[in-house]
Design a protein around this nucleic acid. Structure first.
Lengths: 365, 365
DNA sequence: ATGAAAGCGCTAACAT
DNA sequence: ATGTTAGCGCTTTCAT
C-alpha cells in the first residue's frame, strides 16, 4: 500500500506526504546523563560500558539500568576521538559494480565488522579522484587502513599514503611496504590452457586484458607456460588484446577470423570477453565447442546459464576480501609487522564450452 | 614483477618480505602546530582552513605556507566531533554483490561524495544483523542518514531508528516518515506484458519473486493490469512463485510443463529467473521465442549476450542511488522536511527472446 | 572501587 | 582582523 499519488511513466518526484513524524530531538543522552541518573560519576559509567575492571557488581547494575532507562548508546565519534582510533577501514575500487569487486568488498566488510571495524567503500575511476580520496580518508584520519582494488590499472599506486597500513587486492604489491592478496593468476592461465591441450587442441587463441595490468601479464604467463610445457610453439598472431568487455572479446575474434587465423581452442582472460568471443564465433558459422573450445576466467554469475555454459576458472573473491581485512586488522594491531603477500587458489570448472554433452555439475546462480 | 616466493596451487600465505618500510610516526600535526609556526592563534588557522571570513590576506598566506611546510591535514573526526556532524551516510543492503544493489551503492556514493559526504555500506542478511548495524551506525552516531535497500524483504523495516533521516530503496515507504526511491514496478510489468500481447500472445505465464516482497506484488499488478486492459482473462495456474534465482525460474517452468499448462508467452520478474526459464523450456524441446516468447526484468549485465538475447525491462539503478543520496542530503539540511516518495521510470528493451531476427540495437556490456 | 582533572583536535561564541 | 575561552563526549591518568 503506497500513499503516493500517481505520476507514472515520466518518473521523478511523485508526491509529498504528511509531515515527517518529526525525528527525535537529536537525542543527546551522554555518559553524564547516565551518571546522574545512576548517582555515580561519569567515569564509572565509562568503566561499565567498557566492560572494564573494577566496578562493584552493585553499581554496575545500577548503571546498566540507567543506560537502559535512558536508551543511552555511546557516541562512537567521541570515543574514537579520545582514543585516536576510528575503527574504520576504507576500500577504493575502480568501481563498485563489477561483481568481483563487489564480492571482495562484501567479504572484507563482513570480516571487518566481525572485528568491530566498519568499511567505507568508494570508487575512483581515475587518479585524480583517487588522490582526492586519499586526502579525505587517510590524511584526515577517517580511516585506519586502506584496501586498494586493482592498484596497477593506472598510476594510483604512486599516490599511496604512508600513515596507514595498506593492502592491495587483485595484484601482488611490487614493494614490500604493502600487503597484498591476489589470485594465482598464472596458475589459472595454466589450468585453462592445460585443459584445452588435454582436449588435443594445439592452436589456442588468447584474448588478454589491457596490456598494462599485472593480471593480464600473469594470466598470459600461465598460457605461455602451459604451451611451453606441452612443447607447443606459441603463435603471437593468436594473441589479441581486449579490455575485459564482452564487446572487446567479440571484436578480438572478428579480428582473428578476418586475418584468417586458424585455431580450435580459445582462452579469454575473463568470462565477459569469452561470451563476446562465442558470439563472434557463432556469427562466423563456427560452433562452440565443436569447432572452437572456449575457456573463460572468473566464473561470473550465471556462467553456467550461457549457451554453451562456460568452462572457466573459478576463484573465491569473498575469501579474498576477508583475507585482506584480516591483514589490515593484523597490521593495525602490530604496525611494525612486515608486508604479507598472500596468494589465493583458483580452480578449473569444466562446462559445455569445452566439453560437449558433459553433465553440468551444478547451476550456481 | 612480484617478489614473493612461490607456493602455488595450495594458496595461502606465500612469503613475507623485507621490513615494512615503517610508516610515519603517527603524524600528529595539529592546528596548533600550524599556528605556532605561522605565529598566529590556532583559531586563525581554523579560520583559514574553513575558508572563512575575515583573515588578512597576509596572515592567510603565512598560515597556508605553514600548512604546506608541516604537511598538515585537518582531522575529520575532531572536526565533526566539534560540529556534531560526521558527514557520513550508511547504506544497508541484503548483500553487496547483487549488481542492482551494487549500482545503487555506487551511484549513492558518487553523489554523496560530490557533496562532501562519505558512504559506509554494509550487508545485512537477516534482521539480527540489521538491528546490530543500526546500533553501530546510528545509535552511536557514526552516520547522519541511512539508506535501506529492500526494507521489506523481512521485518527489518520495523527496526528503523528515529534519529536520522532514512530513505528506502527499491520499495515505496509504507509510512510517510521515510523517504523512498523506487522503480515504477507496475509500469514495468505492464510494459512487459503489453509487449507480449502486442505479439499476439494470449496465454502468458508469469514467474514472480517471493510473495512477501512489495516489488513482486507491484510487478504482478502490472501483469494483471495489462491482461485486464486487453480483456484477456488471467489464469492463476500460469502464475508461479520463484525466489529471484535462475534455478527457481528453471523449476517454475518445469512445474508448469509437468502440469501440462499451455502458454506461448512468459514474463519473469527478473532476468535471472528468465534465463533459468529459458533453459527449462529448451530442455523440454520448446524454442524461444518461436514456441514461447520470454520477457525478463532488470536488463542485467550481458543480458544481450544470452542466447537468445533477453527482452527485458531496463532501469537506471545508478540514478536511483544518486536520487537517494540527494534525498538524504536534503533531509539533513532541513530535518523537518517531509518524506518524499520518488518513482523512477523504466523502459522496455526488445531483443531476441521475443522478437526473432530482430537486429540488436546494442550490446551493452 | 570510585571520583576529579586533563585532554583528544577541533569549532563556536565572545572578546579585543 | 585576531585572540581567548569553552566546550563536543568520551578516555586516561592520577587521586582517594
Amino acid at each position: 500500500m503506497c500513499y503516493y499519488v500517481t505520476g507514472h511513466m515520466t518518473g521523478h518526484i511523485v508526491s509529498i506526504i504528511e509531515f515527517s513524524g518529526k525525528r527525535m530531538p537529536k537525542s543527546r543522552i551522554t555518559i553524564r546523563d547516565v551518571a546522574a541518573r545512576a548517582g555515580v560519576s561519569h567515569q564509572t559509567v565509562s568503566r561499565v560500558i567498557n566492560a572494564s575492571e573494577r566496578v562493584s557488581p552493585d553499581t554496575r547494575l545500577r548503571v546498566e539500568q540507567a543506560i537502559r532507562d535512558l536508551g543511552y548508546a555511546p557516541n562512537a565519534i567521541a570515543r574514537y576521538m579520545a582514543k585516536g582510533s576510528t575503527r574504520t577501514f576504507a576500500c577504493i575500487a575502480p568501481n563498485l559494480t563489477d561483481f568481483t569487486f563487489a564480492s571482495i568488498i562484501d567479504g572484507a566488510e563482513m570480516k571487518a565488522r566481525q572485528n568491530g571495524y566498519f568499511l567505507m567503500s568508494a570508487s575512483a575511476s581515475d587518479v585524480d579522484i583517487f588522490k582526492n580520496l586519499i586526502v579525505q580518508l587517510v590524511d584526515s584520519r577517517r580511516t585506519e587502513g586502506l584496501m586498494v582494488i586493482n592498484p596497477y590499472i593506472d598510476d594510483r599506486h604512486l599516490h599511496l599514503p604512508p600513515q596507514v597500513p595498506i593492502v592491495f587486492l587483485g595484484a601482488c604489491a611490487h614493494s614490500g611496504r604493502f600487503n597484498s592478496v591476489f589470485l594465482d593468476e598464472e596458475e589459472g592461465g595454466r589450468l585453462a590452457v592445460q585443459h584445452l591441450l588435454d582436449l588435443n587442441h594445439k592452436r589456442i587463441a588468447h584474448i588478454t586484458g589491457p596490456r598494462r595490468e599485472d593480471c593480464t601479464l600473469n594470466r598470459k604467463a600461465g598460457y605461455l607456460s602451459a604451451l611451453l610445457q606441452a612443447e607447443v610453439e606459441p603463435d603471437p598472431d593468436l594473441i589479441v588484446e581486449g579490455d575485459w568487455s564482452a564487446t572487446s572479446g567479440y571484436r578480438a575474434v572478428k579480428q582473428l577470423i578476418n586475418q584468417g587465423q586458424r585455431f580450435t581452442g580459445l582462452f579469454a582472460q575473463n568470462d565477459r570477453m569469452a561470451v563476446g568471443a562465442i558470439k563472434a564465433l557463432r556469427e562466423s558459422g563456427l560452433s562452440v565447442p565443436e569447432d572452437v573450445a572456449v575457456v573463460g576466467f572468473d566464473d561470473m554469475p550465471l556462467a553456467s546459464y550461457f549457451d554453451p555454459s562456460l568452462t572457466t576458472i573459478r576463484q573465491d573473491m569473498l575469501s579474498l576480501g576477508k583475507a585482506a581485512a584480516l591483514l589490515l586488522l593484523n597490521a593495525v594491531k602490530d604496525p611494525d609487522s612486515p608486508g604479507v603477500q598472500q596468494k589465493m587458489p583458483v580452480e578449473l570448472v569444466i562446462r559445455s564450452s569445452t566439453a560437449p554433452n558433459r553433465q553440468e555439475e551444478e547451476n550456481p546462480d
